[in-house]
Design a protein around this nucleic acid. Structure first.
Length: 581
RNA sequence: GGUUCGGUAGUUCAGUUGGUUAGAAUACAGCACUGUCACUGCUGGGGUCGCGGGUUCGAGUCCCGUCCGGACCGCCA
């Protein structure tokens, strides 16, 4: 062994012991007559000391060591005369009498410190150096804990981890597939799974009635801070269950994770229907750390001569409690915020409830103080509050107000990252109509079952059919989602028909699943959690990249290994692939 | 596909109305220093101002294009 101890474990109780440590040179402090050297590994930092009077040659050797040299040092644990109570090993140091350089290092392009001087770009290029830094390592350690705790919980609940293939079949629904050419089957391609969806359903048919897998999934879509082309899911499926069984089982998982990893007790998760989420928060993943619910004003504001409101499909607002002191400048900022093309509102109406009880609005030319008072009542506003109102086409306006609500929540400090508000959003629509393609698409996926009481509507009004589908939302982040599946071949075939598949196409794409359903498929359903997102949420970060050892950048590139990259003509030839550019 | 912000020393950044030899901090190298722990002090080296074109007597600075990176919209069953 290269070491008897790690750099994080020696204490005063080890005083006098001869130890051998190995690690990286964090920093040296050369005082002339003596040299101090901080030795670092995954576990901590231990100070080595070299003294010119005791061993001049060794001291000279130590002075030559550069940052990130890998060394092995043997010596005696000694009590420090000047202790450093900022680190756990600060009471001791190693009086070194043998020093071996295991490897030299070039000067790293950025400092390997908690507060590094390196920018994101550079740190990604040298990710293996970035991973030496404490903040990044802590994130990966958190991820490790999360995966262990999840596995233990699911194992204790009788779930069995089964691996499913990565080289599978491309399917038309959903995200764009990553494809892999098959050398042995000329002109044919595998696809990487967007999720193990069909396989886990087949496992239910096989009788593995509690399945899980912590598994990579692949979607070839544009990226975001919380989206990578390859990401990890905690993928689960259960047989002989109803929606309620799934919700309680996986509510249990998340509460257990919060308790075991963060020491946080989470109350039983409230439920909100999709319809309510859209009506009161303007999105299907509301951040419920704060209220500020939407209040619709159509009845109060129409036909008073204000054209913007009269012409609007929906007039809806929020009450920013305690924000009445907002200045003209701040209100203009908010107006600019909602008018940005990404948000798309045409303007912002405010109504300030002054602390003296008077009301002041940007539209008080059209509305009397009496009417404004009624607005305030509708919002439950109190003196000192600020009402913000948007108007326009209903869906667009809700979406814009959702952004404004989140912005106000941030500005008013209502989105503390150490506060957790979890809920289930349930009763999602089964289908949504896509104008461009002029057909219905499954909102969750084509295997999601409709609510039994809504099945008749499939024929008359497909858009109003609710699904047995649910999302878990924490602090405005969709951390997981799932559904009760269709296990009946006839209903599944009807779904494919609604989605515009001919029976032949359905058979070709999903025949394996529908055929399986003819051999005794049990009722089943499941859920998948976005593991990277869950980790970033627990770690208090917006970006999932911080919790992935080797992430991709905004354009899906790995800048460290420089992938993707062209391949040799010989490889293309072997695959019978001809590039047309 | 679109919007927006950025690219200047190894690194993080500053750089005035377009005007002298492009600066600071940090890192690095050298010297001095026996209790430091962001050691300290002194000295030094270090620049294709992303790239290409244009305007101008003169461009890091203005214009056009392009490449790279970040955030976002579309997209993400």
């Amino acid at each position: 062994m290269f070491r008897s101890h790690t750099c994080g474990e020696l204490r005063l109780s080890h005083q006098g012991q001869t130890v051998t440590l190995a690690g990286w040179v964090q920093r040296s402090r050369d005082l002339g007559g003596m040299t101090f050297l901080d030795l670092r590994d995954r576990y901590g930092i231990t100070q080595l000391v070299f003294n010119m009077e005791i061993n001049a040659a060794l001291c000279e050797q130590a002075r030559k060591l550069g940052r990130e040299f890998v060394i092995q040092a043997k010596g005696k644990v000694a009590e420090r005369s000047n202790k450093n109570n900022t680190i756990p090993t600060g009471e001791i140091e190693i009086v070194v009498d043998e020093l071996i350089v295991l490897n030299v290092s070039k000067t790293p392009p950025f400092t390997i410190e908690d507060e590094t001087d390196g920018g994101d770009d550079l740190r990604m290029k040298y990710r293996y150096l970035d991973l030496r830094r404490n903040p990044v390592r802590n994130n990966l350690e958190l991820r490790h804990r999360m995966s262990i705790v999840s596995r233990n919980y699911l194992d204790a609940q009788g779930f069995m981890e089964v691996e499913t293939p990565y080289l599978i079949k491309s399917t038309p629904e959903g995200a764009r597939d990553f494809v892999v050419p098959s050398r042995m089957n000329e002109g044919q391609f595998y696809a990487l799974p967007q999720s193990p969806q069909t396989f886990k359903q087949l496992l239910m048919v096989s009788g593995y009635d509690r399945y899980y897998q912590i598994v990579k999934c692949f979607r070839d879509e544009d990226l975001r801070a919380d989206r990578q082309p390859e990401f990890t899911q905690i993928d689960c499926e259960m047989a002989f269950v109803e929606q309620e069984d799934i919700l309680s089982t996986f509510e249990g998982l998340v509460r257990h994770l919060f308790k075991a990893v963060k020491g946080v007790d989470i109350a039983s998760l409230p439920r909100m229907t999709y319809a309510d989420a859209m009506k009161y928060y303007g999105c299907d993943k509301p951040d419920t750390r704060f209220e500020m619910r939407f209040v619709e004003l159509n009845d109060l504001v129409k036909n008073k001569g204000f054209k913007v409101f009269d012409d609007a499909g929906l007039v809806v607002g929020i009450n920013a409690a305690g924000a009445a002191e907002y200045t003209r400048k701040q209100l203009d900022e908010l107006t600019d915020f909602v008018k940005r093309p990404q948000i798309g509102a045409t303007g912002l109406v405010y109504c300030r409830y002054n602390t003296d009880g008077t009301l002041k609005s940007s539209v008080d030319k059209f509305y009397s103080e009496e009417e404004l008072k009624r607005w305030a009542e509708a919002f439950g506003a109190k003196p000192g509050d600020l009402i913000l109102i948007l108007a326009g086409e209903a869906n667009k306006t809700r979406k814009a107000l959702n952004e404004l609500r989140l912005e106000m929540g941030t500005r008013l400090g209502l989105r503390d990252k150490d506060t957790y508000s979890c809920l289930w959003v349930v009763d999602f629509p089964l289908l949504e109509f896509n104008e461009d393609a002029n057909r219905w698409f499954a909102m969750h996926h084509p295997f999601t079952s409709p609510k039994p009481e809504d099945i008749a509507l499939l024929e008359s009004d497909p858009g109003s059919v609710r699904a047995n589908a649910y999302d878990m939302v924490v602090n405005g982040v969709e951390v997981g989602g799932g559904s009760i599946r269709i296990h009946d071949r006839t209903l599944q075939a009807r779904m494919f028909e609604l989605l515009g598949f001919s029976p032949e196409q359905a058979q070709e794409q999903f025949g394996f699943l529908m055929n399986a359903f003819e051999f005794g498929a049990p009722p089943h359903g499941g859920i998948a959690f976005g593991f990277d997102r869950l980790c970033s949420l627990f770690g208090g970060s917006e970006s999932i990249r911080d919790f992935i050892a080797f992430p991709k950048n905004n354009s899906g590139r790995d800048v460290m290994i420089d992938a993707p990259s062209p391949i040799d003509q010989a490889q293309l030839d072997e695959l019978k692939i001809k590039l047309n550019s």
